[in-house]
């Protein structure tokens, strides 16, 4: 029997559950190695061959190459591991989050300064469609 996943109805959100953890295991193992300065340098010097050390799927490899942040979440990356890729690129959490929302970093920062995003219209997929 499949586990109950009420959170799958939250729009614009990928909850990191056991199934995503399984799909993303090697992807997250790769991201975890970016905690070391020497690894960050090696990755930036030659991303392709660095990635060859890890058993990523073709889709995961492509999403890393293009820094397709939402796709990476969908393919099993956990956001805290993913942040290490952003840091390796010299970016911040806030930059990564802005990219996931499709906003510019400046617009995202402005939204946060105004109090952030209201949950109105973002509670369920059906509610989102009406907006």
């Amino acid at each position: 029997m499949a586990a109950d996943k009420p959170y799958e109805d939250i729009p614009g959100t990928w909850i990191f559950d056991a199934e995503r953890a399984r799909a993303g295991y090697h992807l997250n193992r790769f991201l975890y190695t970016l905690m070391k300065e020497s690894n960050r340098k090696a990755f930036l010097a030659d991303e392709r061959s660095y990635l060859e050390q890890f058993k990523l799927t073709a889709a995961q490899r492509e999403a890393v190459r293009t820094r397709d942040w939402n796709r990476l979440l969908e393919l099993g990356a956990v956001v805290y591991a993913l942040a290490k890729l952003a840091f390796t690129d010299g970016r911040s959490y806030q930059y990564m989050a802005s990219q996931m929302t499709g906003m510019t970093e400046k617009d995202y920062v402005d939204m946060m300064l105004k109090g952030g995003r209201s949950p109105e219209g973002w509670r369920s997929k059906s509610e989102r469609e009406k907006h």
């Binding site: 939250i10 729009p11 614009g12 959100t13 990928w14 939402n70 979440l73 956001v79 959490y93 990564m96 989050a97 802005s98 996931m100 929302t101 499709g102 995202y108 939204m111 946060m112 109090g115 952030g116 995003r117 209201s118 949950p119 973002w122």
Partner: peptide, 15 residues
């Protein structure tokens, strides 16, 4: 407290 840092819904807060 309230926060979301992932996906298109990132930036959510609920005072």
């Amino acid at each position: 407290m309230s926060h979301q840092i992932q996906g298109p819904r990132a930036g959510l807060t609920n005072p």
